[in-house]
């Protein structure tokens, strides 16, 4: 019995890692830059598909293919920012919601046409596992956790110690004041957004590699999970988003263990509502005028 719950806990940690990885990029875009997006998942999946294209169609080595996809995704992020956000910086955030929704619809259908409608198989990037007692821990699961930690620290360093990063943080507090002290608002937003997208795509590659499959329809669900993780952990806190991801993963799997599997997704949304009602700024976030 204990072994059973331990297994489910571990399943939760594994899934949580993936949510956490996705949540970092989402937190940067949504939490730090304040850009509402419902196309995050679709953009991430598109990036992974680009990598897949390099691998499957152009025949490149898998790791090289995925690495190549990252700069392309970065540029794509700039394009997305131009289409969905640039014009609406002074407008209500709800407008961004609709532009990203429209863009998501467009991207999903376009992906289906460009890359085909079926699921695509992606081989595991890192094979092998270690055994601890009854549990098998795959190297790729460890890899995901390690990358998550690396990203948190790298991002924190970036935001606190580099010029661009500090500029982005200034932006998130007060756009006009930031402009007055010389921050190039446009460039900073574009950079921050693209960075968030690239981080997400990295997470997407891990996800595709872990589950060995990707499909253009995976986007929306992924985005919703990342979104829930960020709100749960605290919109303004990037490490909070990561913790939110883990909590989400664990709660979901424990819910399946205790209740029925049909209510798995319900758990995520109930958590969302409870957090919002009790502490809207999330577990680790600060009070913010949004």
């Amino acid at each position: 019995m204990f072994g059973f719950y331990l297994s489910q806990l571990f399943n939760g940690i594994t899934q949580g890692s993936i949510y956490a990885l996705m949540a970092i990029g989402y937190s940067l875009i949504f939490g730090t830059l304040g850009l509402v997006t419902f196309a995050y998942g679709d953009i991430v999946i598109f990036g992974v598909f680009v990598g897949y294209y390099f691998y499957a169609v152009l025949g490149l080595n898998l790791i090289l293919a995925m690495l190549l996809a990252l700069p392309i995704t970065f540029l794509f992020g700039v394009l997305v920012e131009k289409i969905c956000y640039e014009k609406f910086r002074k407008e209500a955030r709800m407008l961004m919601l609709i532009t990203t929704v429209g863009f998501g619809i467009f991207l999903r259908s376009a992906s289906q046409i460009i890359f085909g409608t079926g699921n695509k198989s992606i081989p595991t990037l890192i094979e092998g596992k270690i055994e601890i007692g009854n549990l098998n821990i795959l190297y790729i699961q460890l890899g995901i956790i390690i990358f998550t930690l690396i990203f948190i620290y790298a991002l924190r360093y970036f935001l606190n110690n580099t010029r661009t990063g500090i500029g982005i943080r200034a932006l998130s507090m007060d756009q006009d004041a930031a402009k007055l002290v010389g921050v190039n608002v446009d460039k900073s937003i574009k950079f921050g957004h693209s960075l968030g997208v690239v981080l997400g795509v990295f997470g997407g590659i891990m996800l595709g590699s872990f589950y060995n499959a990707i499909s253009p329809m995976m986007g929306p669900n992924l985005g919703l999970k990342a979104f829930t993780a960020v709100v749960l952990g605290g919109i303004t806190s990037i490490p909070g988003a990561v913790i939110g991801g883990y909590i989400l993963g664990i709660m979901e799997n424990l819910a399946v263990a205790v209740f029925s599997s049909g209510y798995r997704d319900v758990v995520a949304f109930i958590i969302l509502i409870i957090v919002l009602v009790v502490k809207p700024s999330g577990l680790f976030g600060k009070e913010v005028k949004f």
Binding site: Q15, M218, S261, G262
Partner: peptide
């Protein structure tokens, strides 16, 4: 019997059950 929704990718919880 265990149910899942379409598009689900992670079945480890269900399989463990």
């Amino acid at each position: 019997t265990e149910a899942f929704f379409g598009g689900e990718t992670d079945f480890s919880a269900i399989l463990t059950n």
